[in-house]
Amino acid sequence: MSERKTWQELELGVELPAATSLGYKTGGWRVLRPVWNASECIHCMICVNYCPDMAIPVTKSEEGVAGKGGRLFKGVVRLETNLDYCKGCGICAHECPTKCLSMIREEEAEQASCKL
């Protein structure tokens, strides 16, 4: 926790610069964690566009990434969910047309990562 500003240090009219909420991690709210099976993904972007927390990053891939059926997906592809912000709502898993996403309990995920 950073030091709080004094009244002399405050911005005029408490104006804020852009996008400071990136410093506020909402991942701690999560009870369920999305697990993405990239080999079943068709990079349809449904989960990305639906994600309420803007927590599924995308990139432009010219060489392509392997997805469902070993197919190469070029262009805009999704990456791993950003767990710093994902609140675990499960919309991505519910709406995924290939069921390449599933929700597991956060403590299970943590235990699994401990074992690793």
Partner: peptide
């Protein structure tokens, strides 16, 4: 050039400081 948020919600942790600056 300077993207800004105006009128953010200020909770008890900062409101007093905002008003003190206004008085100044």
């Amino acid at each position: 050039q300077h993207v800004r948020t105006i009128g953010a919600m200020v909770l008890p942790d900062y409101l007093l400081e905002v008003k003190r600056a206004q008085e100044e």
